[in-house]
Design a protein around this nucleic acid. Structure first.
Lengths: 253, 253
DNA sequence: CGCAAATTTGAGAGCATTCAACTCCTGTGG
DNA sequence: CCACAGGAGTTGAATGCTCTCAAATTTGCG
């Protein structure tokens, strides 16, 4: 319906997409890629605050972020939110819906965001014959499990300080992978989202940013962030000890 | 090598397995099931404390618990453990290894445990032609993501009390699904494992058990557990409010 | 039976939360 | 252009939940 003006941008193909290597096409040959492209739909941009899908929505498709960023969160029966993740270009979302045939979380745009919609049934059909695609999809599912488990480790054991440091380094690494600066970037999520995600109070996050800045680790100005001391941040994350070689004296096997 | 005595037990088939409906075979027809069975290996039982695989081991197969139970845990660089889950008959483990081609956690038997070993490459081959199998595998992967995210919600926001209540109810439901009593069962994991899993100190868990018992919610005696008041436990888990209908006055979409 | 590990119990300390007030930023309407 | 409303973010003070340390007690197993 919209003008044809930036059709070239909207109809961008996987083959020409810079995110190929992070996304579903990884490991799929050129020919098969064309078949994949045929089932992918690219709608209009999602404005900030708009939802891609709601918790409870029937499962129809999975989505890849093309530009922008989103947060996903679940709402418990008691009504309060838990942010389960932030997602950036090249990342696949909606995979949790395969289990129960409906989405278990809501996904909301943190800024203007473009997504690729991949109807699951048709993707599944393609998986039958395209081995690489099948495997990459599995890998991405598996990766999400690994990620969640890392997050678990974090929420279970780490202090507020360690949690924030971990998140900042994760963001930095992800931006870096996508060709952006690893040291300076803009947070697309609010302090509230960060706090919720990390299982902390907003005030605590605010105080931590203040302290990190005071300690010369960061330069923070609203949502603009500059990392000044990577090594100290990493030091926080790893606990305390440098990678010591543990002499395993545990049981057999 | 072992005697032929209980061969009938060891060579038990999927078709005759009572866990069929919880496990990989769900949605696979009889004929295809035979093909699946052919690739599955059932080794000797794993004694308590033995490890099924180590963090870092190359990825060869996924496993289904047949009898017994296991815990899975990751060891951070700083050396401390995080228990990421407990697994019971019918549950598939090792799925996290698909992502990076090596296991990201260690799995240890909590009691004598039998597992079915399913070589991944051959499973993948079967997935090519057996649609139901492919879909079930995806579902199980997805389910694990959903589970982890629920756990995240728990560790992020809940109090110690709520965490333990949540875990007990989860165990109860799982035992019940497997045909055991929902109200009385034996914990195969130590207090330490529980504490670690829930992100609490051992002492806290111990005190909670004492308090729950004192409040008439449970009867605890070592690892034997009887749930006396389900509704109160559920009440704890849900936060506080009965399923109130929230008048959603949020944004559009 | 006896040691070692697991569990329980007690007391005190600390980190993060909660409550409260205030500032800053943004967008809207006069 | 400016005043104002409202949300987002910051800062301060006090409470409290959970942890840590310490020691007693029980359980499991050789």
């Amino acid at each position: 319906m919209a003008g044809v003006v930036r059709l070239h941008e909207i109809k961008r193909t996987c083959a020409s997409c810079s995110l190929q290597e992070l996304c579903l096409p990884l490991g799929v040959n050129e020919e098969d890629l064309k078949r994949l492209e045929q089932i992918i739909q690219r709608g209009r941009p999602l404005d900030k605050g708009r939802k891609l899908y709601h918790q409870g929505d029937p499962f129809v498709a999975i989505y890849a972020i093309r530009t922008g960023s989103v947060k996903s969160f679940t709402v418990g029966e008691d009504g309060n939110e838990q942010v389960t993740g932030f997602h950036f270009p090249g990342e696949l979302i909606g995979l949790d819906a395969i289990a129960n045939n409906h989405h278990d979380c809501t996904v909301m745009a943190l800024e203007t965001t473009n997504v690729c919609e991949i109807p699951y049934e048709r993707l599944d059909e393609l998986c039958e014959t395209i081995h690489g695609l099948r495997h990459q999809l599995m890998r991405l599912l598996s990766k999400e499990i690994v990620n969640d488990q890392k997050l678990l480790l974090m929420l279970g054991k780490k202090t507020a300080e360690e949690r924030l440091a971990t998140m900042l380094l994760s963001l930095s690494a992800r931006y870096s992978l996508r060709g952006y600066s690893a040291t300076e970037f803009n947070l697309s999520m609010s302090r509230g989202d960060i706090a919720n995600y990390l299982g902390l109070a907003v005030e605590t996050v605010s105080r931590l940013f203040a302290r990190f800045q005071q300690d010369g680790l960061l330069a923070v100005e609203g949502r603009n962030l500059k990392i000044l001391d990577f090594s100290k941040l990493k030091f926080m994350v790893d606990g305390c000890e440098p990678p010591a070689k543990l002499t395993e004296n545990r049981g057999p096997n």
